[in-house]
Simulated assay, not measured.
Amino acid sequence: MTGSAPGGGLPRYEIDGRAATAEGMGVLATVNYGHFTAMQVRGGRVRGLAAHLARLDAASIELFGAGLDADLVRARIRHALGDVADASVRVIVFAPDLGRPRELSVLVAVRPPAGMATTPQALRSVPYQRPLAHIKHLGGFGQLHFGRLARAEGYDEALLTGPGGVVSEGAVTNVAFVRPGGAGVVWPDAPCLHGITMQLLEPLLPGAGIPSARGPVRLADIPSYAAAFVVNSQGIAPVSRIDDVTLPVDEALMTTLTGLYASVPWDSI
């Protein structure tokens, strides 16, 4: 097994700056313990690079007791990209030997660029919350399982919920709900991953006249909201339906949100 496709195409997989081998990938295939970040690269640049690097460092400290050098991660990404300017990049951090957890390896997966569907999304609520939800960790069986079931029922994604129908996040997104009467948006405060796109977009909202807050959201509350939207590294999309509740799409708000996100500068890797 080699890490690069023939002719230098995509996908490419490198571990610690070298083409991935079956031996090198073995621990991920059998243990699947680690964490990652996912980003869209355009022209060799990415939005929110500092936030991605901070996420990797913090999770490495929490899971392995050792930080991760930002310059090293950038070098690994640049090497894996090579002459590829536009790509979907995933950076995975793991310990090849869990008996020595502070000795970390960095896997960089380079795949073709992707974008979120901007068409309205239908979400199916499921009774599941991710363990250690604040970490973007490996082993997302629940997300994949419930996401597959949601799509089989004609939905686009699963909406993860906890006891009492408290809303946490989408299977691969953050979700926000729009209060009626121009009262702004609320992001669920249940356990969830604060995604990079959420981190970049949330502080820009008040400056655009959109109050933003975090608070409890329950499935029973959803009919009272004026609209909803989801965000992740691939972009922003409106939500048109959650279970059997139809939500209107606020086109003006979506235009504002996409404009705000487009204003975020791209950082050279």
Rank of each mutant, 00 (worst) to 15 (best):
P131N: 10
L160T: 07
E157D: 05
L144D: 03
H134D: 06
A50I: 00
A85M: 11
I15R: 14
A228R: 00
L144W: 00
V27G: 06
Q234W: 12
E14Y: 09
M25H: 11
V178W: 00
D267W: 08
L10W: 02
W187Y: 01
D156C: 06
L159I: 00
R241Y: 02
L247E: 05
L260F: 13
P223S: 10
F141S: 08
R130G: 04
T118Y: 02
N32S: 15
A5C: 03
S4Y: 12
D250S: 12
G26S: 15
H137F: 01
F177V: 01
L201N: 01
E103H: 11
E23V: 15
P188M: 00
P206L: 10
A75Q: 04
S224E: 08
R18K: 11
V175Q: 01
P203D: 09
A87V: 14
A213P: 00
D86S: 01
P131Q: 06
L28A: 14
L200W: 03
G82S: 15
P112W: 06
G65L: 07
G8S: 15
D16R: 10
L247Y: 13
A228E: 00
D221E: 07
L160M: 14
A171T: 03
A208C: 05
G195I: 12
W266F: 15
G99H: 04
A220K: 01
S168Y: 00
G162R: 06
G67A: 09
T258R: 04
N232E: 14
D97R: 12
R74G: 01
G115L: 04
I222D: 00
G215Q: 08
R90D: 10
R151Y: 02
A66L: 02
G170V: 04
G140D: 06
D244Y: 09
A51R: 07
I92S: 14
H79P: 05
G181M: 09
G184F: 06
L144G: 01
V185H: 03
D156W: 06
Y128W: 15
F146L: 12
N174W: 01
D189A: 10
L219D: 06
R74I: 11
R100K: 08
G164F: 04
A54H: 03
A213E: 12
V166H: 01
V84K: 13
G7H: 08
L257Q: 00
V73Q: 07
A70E: 11
